[in-house]
Simulated scan of single mutants.
Amino acid sequence: MLGIYDYTVVLTYVSLMVSIGGMMLSVNGHLNLAVLCLAISGLCDMFDGKIARTKKDRTEEEKCFGIQIDSLCDIVCFGVGPAIICYCIGMRGPIGMVILMFYVLAGLIRLAWFNVTEECRQKETDEKRACYQGLPITSMAIILPLVVVFRPLLGKEFMVALHAAVLVVGLLFITDFKLRKPKNATLVVLVVIVAAAVLKILHVCQ
């Protein structure tokens, strides 16, 4: 068969399938469950790279495949997925639709740029990146669940906050700045934050 199917890509594939499920849920009106799927997909993405790097004898072909499959899944999971969820939540006016189109395009540009620079970098060194260049697209798996969790507090301003969040995140995707990658302690904090958001969403779904 074409492709790679070992343990190094399992979480990436799981992340994609969960996100597709979330999109299906969103178009059927199950928005909280859709956001939950986005958060779970983000949790998978936090660890897929770490798992892939545990295989020390990866071939150049496997490394290149990992870069490409990760970015292809990311644009679906954290680009198209959140856009569909936000559209179903209510970003259906002309401004909202333009923002969503820009958001997906910005995510796509960012990932394409990452692929080009990462392939060049890996030819020179096996060390992992110390910093992100621009905001990583997977950040939406944290930001959108948090915005949804705070919906009761935002009240009538929720849609304004949602529009603003999507626009700002999209802009940060393609803004050239350095963002230090989280260390293990920070990663634990992020996992706790996402888990708290997931639990809150689960409570709402009951």
Rank of each mutant, 00 (worst) to 15 (best):
M91G: 00
L144C: 07
P82R: 00
L111R: 03
Q68F: 12
V104Q: 00
F102G: 08
V76M: 11
G107K: 09
V116T: 10
G93D: 15
I69Y: 03
I75F: 04
N115R: 12
I137W: 00
I75M: 08
C131N: 15
P145F: 06
R92L: 07
W113T: 15
V76D: 01
I95L: 15
V76K: 04
I84G: 01
D70R: 10
G93A: 11
W113V: 13
T125A: 03
N115F: 08
V80C: 09
A112F: 03
V80L: 14
I85C: 01
V147E: 08
R121H: 11
C86D: 03
G134D: 02
I75E: 07
A106T: 01
R92V: 12
M101I: 15
F114P: 00
D126I: 10
E124F: 04
D70T: 13
T138F: 05
A112W: 02
G93L: 11
I142C: 13
I109F: 15
L72G: 13
C73K: 10
A106H: 00
A130D: 15
Q68N: 14
V98K: 06
L135E: 03
M101V: 13
D74F: 09
D126V: 08
A141P: 05
V76G: 04
A141L: 11
L144Y: 09
